[in-house]
Amino acid sequence: MTPPDSRFHIEVIKLLLQVATSDERVTREEIDQIIDTARGFSVPLTELSILTRCLQEGRPLPPPNLGVLREDPKAVLQAVHDLVAGDGQVHASEIEMVRQIRELLGISP
């Protein structure tokens, strides 16, 4: 069984991958940042491999579990903000994605 913290971190990584692919273009910087975040969270390599294989093979990514992400919405938003701002440019589509994530997590503006 996956430890509770690990489960939360895996769901954050799933969400970050959804954010990175939302514009149908994933940059090397985004991938590097997601991998760094996964390492910082100590996400099991097997889980990370499954997720990255989806990207490599063009398969749909598994959706993140919002119930698990709602356990710590501030940490989720921080990880999303770090990813979005990581390349030094914030696009309108990214702002909209952050707004939607805030709404899904029940965080008012």
Rank of each mutant, 00 (worst) to 15 (best):
20 A>E: 05
50 I>V: 15
87 D>L: 04
1 M>Q: 11
15 L>G: 03
86 G>Y: 00
100 Q>N: 08
55 L>I: 14
41 F>N: 01
65 N>F: 00
53 R>C: 12
77 L>D: 02
73 P>I: 08
39 R>M: 09
24 E>Q: 15
97 M>V: 10
38 A>W: 01
74 K>W: 09
106 G>D: 11
3 P>K: 01
108 S>F: 08
28 R>E: 12
54 C>K: 15
23 D>E: 14
75 A>N: 11
51 L>H: 09
108 S>H: 14
11 E>M: 01
13 I>R: 00
32 D>W: 04
78 Q>Y: 06
25 R>W: 06
31 I>K: 05
78 Q>L: 13
66 L>M: 10
61 L>W: 07
12 V>E: 00
34 I>W: 02
94 E>S: 06
66 L>Q: 04
6 S>K: 02
79 A>D: 02
57 E>N: 10
56 Q>R: 15
87 D>R: 01
107 I>H: 02
99 R>H: 12
6 S>D: 05
73 P>H: 05
83 L>V: 02
70 R>F: 11
9 H>E: 06
48 L>A: 06
64 P>N: 00
9 H>C: 05
69 L>Y: 03
22 S>E: 14
90 V>F: 11
11 E>W: 03
88 G>L: 04
3 P>Q: 09
76 V>D: 07
61 L>H: 04
7 R>L: 13
106 G>N: 08
14 K>I: 07
82 D>T: 04
34 I>C: 07
21 T>C: 08
47 E>Q: 15
34 I>P: 00
23 D>F: 02
10 I>R: 07
73 P>S: 07
57 E>Y: 14
48 L>R: 03
73 P>E: 08
89 Q>F: 11
50 I>S: 12
82 D>H: 04
101 I>P: 03
51 L>P: 09
11 E>R: 01
98 V>T: 14
50 I>M: 10
17 L>S: 00
76 V>M: 06
31 I>H: 02
109 P>I: 01
96 E>G: 08
104 L>A: 15
50 I>Q: 15
1 M>K: 10
61 L>G: 05
76 V>H: 08
59 R>C: 06
35 I>Y: 08
84 V>Y: 00
2 T>A: 10
9 H>K: 08
71 E>G: 03
52 T>N: 07
65 N>V: 01
88 G>E: 09
6 S>L: 08
43 V>R: 01
13 I>K: 03
32 D>M: 07
14 K>D: 05
25 R>D: 05
14 K>N: 09
35 I>A: 10
90 V>Q: 10
78 Q>C: 01
30 E>S: 03
33 Q>N: 07
65 N>M: 02
